[in-house]
Design a protein around this nucleic acid. Structure first.
Lengths: 341, 341
DNA sequence: TTGAAAGCGCTAACAG
DNA sequence: CTGTTAGCGCTTTCAA
């Protein structure tokens, strides 16, 4: 800290050796009750705090965990980070957050950076453009703790926390069908992401259940997940200029959902009359939208917590772990006006 | 990192001393070109990365900066953090984020925690309930680098980055007046926060300019800045049940603005016909609101960047700094339907 | 029960 | 130009 006391200061002040002080502070058995008390009281008095850097160097542990997400300024991820912090904080870990901005190159750099900072483990949500999972596989093979959350690497067999994306998309699609829609378009994130694949699968399954033919042209992938307006604009335009214009749209990515709305409005279409809408988003203000938006909400905070608990458990485990948790949490469908006929 | 090479490994492999290797790596002058090349090439080959923990211990610097904000899942702060990260990242600092949840006690704990982690400096945005600035004053007096941003401590004479809150509130109020409103209520954050005081001042100044009497009962302070729904509900109810019901409302806090809307809607009032509305918020979706919301937007990203640049400059300055920058950036008024008559 | 000493990875003052 | 050494704060053998 700042002019903070070291073990050496205490030792000198008390006429003891540093090792004795260290032992007293760490509640070792091999120490006299008197000495221990003396040290403890003095340490308390001067507000002694061990230097975490020295500890890290000694223990070869940094007590920090690295987080890789696409963006902090995103409803889902800011809430997830909130969950991550809440657990990490209480466990004495600090959190280093890095953003990929959906760039695979940036993601690789970030991982490098975090490793060079000697983080004890990694909490990763893949970027939309990541295809090379080898670095994660390599680290994992070497026993380095990694937990994926939300956007997981299917091929890497390690801990994963995901939302039930299939079910989330299924329910939203089914709901749109139940409200009388049959021409349901789907706008989603990059094909690289398993979440997209799962959400598309859920969508297809719902169509199938109700014997609605699946039309490939009704699906658009925005590879930048809504971060590039033009991409979304083009996708929405193409969808809504189809000869058989969709009567409903499901968007299955947080940023995509919020970006779609103004585009649709600018086209002069009214939701839900011209186009019903339901979307994945963790926005807290979906209720205030025009019209209030039907959403699929992920338990972001809880997912952050679960992932972090898992990671810390892995980090602190004495024995290598070969059983990988693959926990799936449920999404929540919140029905509002945007999806009603 | 993980099985990473140390300077010692390189020294052994090359039959040199660690100091020679260190010098080569650090581009010292007192070293033979040959040796240097040899070391550099080998280091490159094995992908040598200096251990930042060892460096920190040596230099008594952690290369990390602590951030204190009320909440990550907040439009303004998530964008500001984005700006902070962008600068810190490029300067080789990492960022430890802590959240106060608007609790002064939690804030004090966080600062303690960050200090015990030996952060090199602090980026602080005060909680709404903080009144005791002594710890900051103390640290600052000792020469510890602190930069306040957005919610600054007026009394502590150090670097500050703020938005022009007075002007932001003035312009929004003036706009409401110009669109034909005279009974303008104001809902804002805790009185403890200078931002609230300034925004109220801007509001009053606008009223005065147009000879509209200021009514104290038209101002409500929500001490939790919109985080507690009941508080906001009560404030809005009281305001809108006044004998002389306001015809416009300005809310001057991000979270407050987004929380107000559903409350007003639930009361059965239509914006802007029953009540015009303008609010401070950095939400990216204000355009999609019902109706599209007139907002005062702060340059959050830029503010985060400025604060971080300033902090790093202070940290790295060779000489103590006695000139404190007090930079103010302009807000932006974005006019939409919610404020029109 | 306590102390001395080594070592985590690195830099820098001092010798040579 | 290069090597030796000490030291950053702490824990942990090994001796006493």
């Amino acid at each position: 800290m700042f002019g903070s006391y070291t073990i050496k200061d205490i030792a000198k002040a008390l006429g003891l050796s540093t090792s004795t002080v260290s032992r007293a502070l760490n509640g070792s058995y091999e120490i006299g009750a008197e000495t221990k008390k003396l040290v403890l009281e003095y340490a308390e008095k001067v507000n002694y705090r061990p230097n975490p850097i020295a500890l890290s160097l000694k223990e070869q542990k940094s007590h920090s965990i690295g987080v890789v997400v696409c963006e902090v300024a995103n409803n889902y991820f800011s809430q997830a980070i909130n969950g991550i912090e809440s657990i990490a904080y209480n466990s004495g870990y600090h959190v280093i957050i890095t953003q990929t901005h959906e760039s695979a190159a940036r993601e690789a750099t970030n991982v490098q950076h975090l490793l060079s900072r000697h983080v004890d483990g990694l909490l990763v949500s893949l970027s939309a453009s990541t295809t090379d999972l080898a670095p994660y596989q390599y680290l994992h093979d070497k026993g380095f703790p990694i937990v994926f959350f939300d956007r997981v690497a299917e091929q890497v067999n390690t801990h994963k926390i995901t939302a039930n994306n299939f079910k989330g998309a299924f329910e939203a699609t089914e709901h749109l069908i139940n409200t009388g829609h049959t021409k349901i378009a789907h706008i989603t994130n990059s094909k690289n992401l398993l979440i997209s694949v799962e959400r598309v699968a859920g969508y297809k399954a719902a169509l199938e259940k109700y014997n609605i033919p699946f039309l490939p042209e009704y699906i658009k992938h925005c590879d930048h997940g809504g971060m590039i307006l033009d991409e979304v604009e083009m996708a929405v335009h193409e969808l809504l200029n189809l000869p058989e214009r969709p009567d409903a749209l499901i968007s299955t990515s947080d940023r995509l959902t919020t970006t779609c709305l103004p585009v649709i409005r600018k086209m002069g279409l009214k939701i839900p009359n011209d186009l019903a809408m339901a979307g994945f988003t963790n926005s807290d203000v979906a209720e205030s939208f025009n019209p209030p938006l039907t959403v699929v909400r992920q338990p972001a905070f809880q997912m952050g917590q679960l992932a972090t608990e898992l990671l810390i458990k892995t980090i602190e485990s004495k024995h290598p772990i070969y059983e990988y948790s693959n926990q799936q949490v449920d999404t929540e469908l919140i029905i509002r006006e945007s999806s009603l006929k």
